[in-house]
Design a protein around this nucleic acid. Sequence first.
DNA 1: AAAGAATAATTAATCGTTTAACCAAATATT
DNA 2: AATATTTGGTTAAACGATTAATTATTCTTT
Lengths: 336, 336
Amino acid sequence: MKKRISIKTIAQEVGISNATVSLVLNDKDKEGRVSREMAEKIRKVAKDLNYEPNHLARGLRMGKSQTIGLIVADISNPFFANLAFHIQEYAEKFGYSVIITNTNESDAKLVKILDVLIGHQVDGLIIVPTEHGKPAIEELVKKDFPLVLLDRWYPELQTCYVVIDNYQASKTAVQHLINKKCKRIALFGYTIDLPHMQERKRGYVDTVKKAGLFDENLIKDINYISIDADIKTALDDLFFNEKNEKPDGIFFATNSIALHGLRYMFERGVKVSKDVKAICFDKSDAFDLMESPVPCVLQPIPEMGKLAVDVLINQIVKGTVIPSKVELFAKLSTEE
Amino acid sequence: MKKRISIKTIAQEVGISNATVSLVLNDKDKEGRVSREMAEKIRKVAKDLNYEPNHLARGLRMGKSQTIGLIVADISNPFFANLAFHIQEYAEKFGYSVIITNTNESDAKLVKILDVLIGHQVDGLIIVPTEHGKPAIEELVKKDFPLVLLDRWYPELQTCYVVIDNYQASKTAVQHLINKKCKRIALFGYTIDLPHMQERKRGYVDTVKKAGLFDENLIKDINYISIDADIKTALDDLFFNEKNEKPDGIFFATNSIALHGLRYMFERGVKVSKDVKAICFDKSDAFDLMESPVPCVLQPIPEMGKLAVDVLINQIVKGTVIPSKVELFAKLSTEE
DNA sequence: AAAGAATAATTAATCGTTTAACCAAATATT
DNA sequence: AATATTTGGTTAAACGATTAATTATTCTTT
């Protein structure tokens, strides 16, 4: 493989010093540092040789890499994939590249990824944290490392967050079912011990209680490790256990739970919308194609991504971190 | 922000030279280069200080970054998101990080991304090429830059490819509809002028011709720029134009076309499976939840990703490129 | 006892870029 | 004419890690 073109190559070609080439290529040739003709000559040669600056060398020298690390729970999940898409598009506008990584909800993997990304000298991190990732992230926070947590947060950790108002969103969703005359509304949520999920549950509980419809048996916890089995068990209990009165509404607290749940209900012949109304978090392509579309809570994904980038870059350039929690609002797909 | 820990920090802490620290941390302390106690001491301090090697410095010195660049058409498309997922997981096993980027099918963006990634000193590239990206990629190929094209290919460019047998897959899909007694099978494909799409079309044409079912009016070309409008026009023409005999089968050559198409058909009350049978490329969550599931061509996504990584890393470590086209086989979701 | 080998460390150059500090010549100012 | 300023560059150090070459000990071997 041919050697890459460096500043030195250009300097030799033109018969001049490295420094001058660097000045020109960084547009620091104004203020009478380099003559017009020389600057033009250098630019021409650089273009002819198809010169691309060595990011590693520049990053090393400058102490920053113009790269940000993005850590999501699973890139193959459309919610995170969309988030990643918008983050990348937007970060690029500011000259930042994005390295996207997955934790698969594993705390151990988060720690490892953190090391790898720090090693890559990323200038900052956008993190969708894992359930017990707090210690690792807290260490970075202590060092004032630029980062912003996205989608989820740790209650007692003072840092930057971009999240949505899960409580409100959840209330709106459940209220929607109540408005549709549902009397027995089930909740399907993850067991994950992070406040975004707790907030969704709290929104559910408060809303059904207020309507006098609370029934503990209607709350089903799903472990994402055994998602398929847990959902089947829960649905079987709700719909095919003679002892129980069937629900007439289900609130799925995440998209993945909804998809698995709907699939199983379909398999078992439970008709969504007819037998039981459903609503869930986050849109899926699937919902448009069902016999009757499932309404959902729409998170403002592009805005979340952009805001995360804004908050992060602000930290990076200012060199200082002012902890803040930015909360956006979700809305129902049926609204407006 | 606190300064990052470097080898020098450790060296000073232990009261020793940089070189020794480096040797130990790279496990080159065997063969009597460093004493046992010293090595242990260094390792301990490194761990205590939570040292992470500076990737930039190492990459600069070593002339390689242990990073590979992945260029896909759209990370928010589940097909590519899954591919990205598997590529990342697998590359990690070999100690490579992956930078994921999007072209959004734009040739200009491909050129730009290529520059950015080369600047990042990626050791190699996995590329889902754009329609007219050949010149840019050809230049890299001429320089023997390690790369592998994925999913799509350029007929006259000799380099490394990992693709599926689109012709065969397409034939299988269309044959499935024929087996289901379809007599008027429509094709919905993209106008993109790349052989993977041409092969899918050829598979369709050959198969319907062989069955004596060919009718040019059933071939619909969709431009991804105006995908929504084009699909509506095409479907309107097929189903609501009095002059035409309606189709009883549709082969969607991509997932995105299928989703848009199915949605519009749903909207217009065309019953899939009852009025018209459908089959398409790549699985979507949506298909499981429809009144009657849509069968699809399943590409071996994990294998494609792994193979691409294998082929690429092989080039990188061998330092030489042997052009090759690896073809995998897709199968129907209804098979086996 | 002298030479050779093994052990255990250090020195210094290098990767490509940036940039503060410096220098020389031409031009302007007093 | 002497001095100051502008113009147009160059030098050399630095970023952090790697590694070939070197040095200084200690231990074997004859």
